[in-house]
Design a protein around this nucleic acid. Sequence first.
DNA 1: GTGACATATAAGTCTGACTTTTTGTTTCCG
DNA 2: CGGAAACAAAAAGTCAGACTTATATGTCAC
Lengths: 233, 233
Amino acid sequence: MSTTGRGLHGRVLDTLGPEITAGTYPPGSVLRTDELAQRFDVSRSVMREVVRVLESMHLVESRRRVGVTVLPACEWNVYDPQVIRWRLAGADRPRQLRSLTVLRSAVEPVAARLAAENATAQQCAELTEAALGMVAHSRGHKLEGYLFHDVAFHRVILTASGNEMFARLGDVVAEVLAGRTHHDVMFHDPDPAAVTLHVQVAEAVRARDAERAERLTREITEGALQELDILAP
Amino acid sequence: MSTTGRGLHGRVLDTLGPEITAGTYPPGSVLRTDELAQRFDVSRSVMREVVRVLESMHLVESRRRVGVTVLPACEWNVYDPQVIRWRLAGADRPRQLRSLTVLRSAVEPVAARLAAENATAQQCAELTEAALGMVAHSRGHKLEGYLFHDVAFHRVILTASGNEMFARLGDVVAEVLAGRTHHDVMFHDPDPAAVTLHVQVAEAVRARDAERAERLTREITEGALQELDILAP
DNA sequence: GTGACATATAAGTCTGACTTTTTGTTTCCG
DNA sequence: CGGAAACAAAAAGTCAGACTTATATGTCAC
């Protein structure tokens, strides 16, 4: 699932990045490029590229005669998909999941409203298909299939909103939904009420009822928040 | 205002980054590292670091035997503050401003609700101070002072929400507000109704009235959207 | 104590050689 | 004539070493 992968540079990043976001080195810690290069058994050139990328994510700051300083979490580019993945894989996963779910609760209702106003016929069809797919996989422990259509549904909503900032949150939502399915509760089938809401949202968008699409989506995201409250109070 | 600044690497990035986000090279264009190094008169090492950073922003993709390919805009990390700045400085500034304002309209009301629930006494004080500052600078072409307190106000709301994802949008909002003040309309004093709304939001947060804080903030962001509609229909 | 100066340090930069992967071509056999 | 296999070229990837530059810190005189 980790994307960077390719090349020596990517492998070092995939080790050092998660370490930093996990808080292995407290803010203010100073790392030396040479030592890191030695530790990972790579040349300084490669190590410098890694540090540059980390710096562009505001995870570290590199200064002459000082070294590579780890920045406090409040400086991090928390919208960087890579950073999100690293943090979701780490220890403060629950907190991260909550932050993202709150973000969803703010964005998705507005996205649904816009989607109702702007969605193409094609997108309406995709939305309906996704909702029906959710219904079809909502019983009998077909969780993977359910997740697939759930992700598709929210992706279409975000894309159809016509706002590029919303559209780019599709991956984030996918990550959150996947996390919920795989980690937290695989026990019971999804809440039937939630499934119904998705179908109704699809209907509202198709009917160009922006008000209704927004309200129903808000119910969905509020449900997601409550689910979190039950698990991690 | 451009932040990267430091070092050779930063200067090249500050030229090449904006060029890419401006669409100077259409998606699919292929650049060669060696040629770029020659053009900017830097070594390949430096050029490689630049390409790595661009790659981490998903602006380009580097593949062996083919070169550095420019990715389509839908792949870009549009939440990266650097990318946001580059795009705001470029040609499709109006579109970008609209995207960000829509994002604000989704996020800020929810942030205000959470701020009403979570704000510390300190933060309440800062909020009131900012609102009063806006009032004090709302007449007589004291736009810079007004902007300063406006930015402070929204920053406190986003921070006090207690959600790190919201908090990190402070810079974005600052950029949007600054853009509005400096480019679009410096003619007339700010809308008195908007000023009043800010004061009322501060009151609502202080009174822990989450519902009211959210509703009033929604009015503010809707006003911002309408302002955009008037300027760029 | 305060200011100017010296010094050590770690990042920053450049160069050139070498490796690896991938793509496009060419060749050879069926 | 077609397809598979071998080959060649191109560009990124990697490495090693020498050199430059900024700057934190310690030293010394005043």
